[in-house]
Simulated assay, not measured.
Amino acid sequence: MLSANLQGKRHMSGSIDYGNLMHRAMRGLIKEVLTDVAADGLPGEHHFFITFDTGHPDVQIADWLSDRYPGEMTVVMQHWYDNLKVGDEGFGVSLNFGDAPEALFIPYDAIKTFVDPSVEFGLRFENQDSDEDEDDAHGPEIVRDEGLPSEASSKASKKDAPKDAEVVSLDSFRK
């Protein structure tokens, strides 16, 4: 009976949306990691570079930050962060910008990349526009040793900056 229901659901939609399923799973991973960090702090040398869409309707950042970073912004959670609160839709954190703390709220679905260079781990979320042809849609990627954008909002030492990226695209597994 269960398999008949699943089969019927698959036929009704036409196909399994693996891209969105992967996005949801990857965002769940980010939520779990941030939940652990909120409870116990950053372990060892771990730190995060998080790039997000500043134009996302649910992003909450100071006006001067959205003016300075109108498309996307990369924040670094490493030496100083405060008030990390993790929720179902996103997370809030206070970060230091030029010795001035600023509160931010970043929804998970605004995140473009999540990188922990201490262990050469990264996730990259590609947009899937509904008017794109299915064969041309880009799904999420699991990234090893992801390169950083040229402008990070917090300073990181050069030793933390990853070298060449090795990208494993899920598109290569599609038929």
Rank of each mutant, 00 (worst) to 15 (best):
G87P: 04
G90M: 02
E72M: 12
G139M: 08
G44A: 13
I106Q: 05
G139P: 12
D58F: 10
D40E: 14
F105Q: 07
A103H: 10
R124Q: 15
D58L: 12
I61M: 09
Q60H: 09
L34P: 02
A100T: 13
E89I: 04
I30D: 00
I111Y: 01
I142Q: 03
Y81S: 03
E32W: 01
M73R: 13
N127H: 14
V93I: 15
F52N: 01
E72F: 13
L65E: 11
D129Y: 14
Y69P: 04
F105L: 09
H79S: 12
A25T: 13
R27T: 01
Y69N: 11
S66F: 03
V86D: 05
K112A: 08
G92F: 00
L42H: 05
D129I: 06
I111G: 02
P57M: 00
P117R: 06
D136I: 00
L123D: 06
T51K: 06
N83Y: 05
G139Q: 07
D82E: 15
Y69I: 03
D133Q: 10
M22H: 09
R124I: 09
A39G: 04
I106H: 05
G122D: 10
I30T: 08
A137Q: 15
T35A: 07
A62R: 10
R27S: 09
I142C: 10
E126D: 13
G87R: 08
P101C: 02
A38L: 05
V33I: 14
E120W: 13
N96Y: 09
T51F: 00
L21Y: 09
L29Q: 10
G122I: 07
I111C: 00
D129P: 14
A38F: 04
Q128R: 15
E132G: 10
V119W: 04
L29S: 00
V115T: 15
D136P: 08
P107E: 07
V37S: 04
E141Y: 07
E132Q: 15
D145S: 15
L21K: 08
A137F: 01
I50H: 06
I111Q: 02
H47P: 01
F97W: 08
K112G: 02
M22I: 11
V143G: 06
K85A: 15
L104N: 02
Q78E: 15
N127E: 13
P140I: 05
E89S: 09
R27F: 07
F91L: 06
L95A: 00
D40A: 15
Y108S: 03
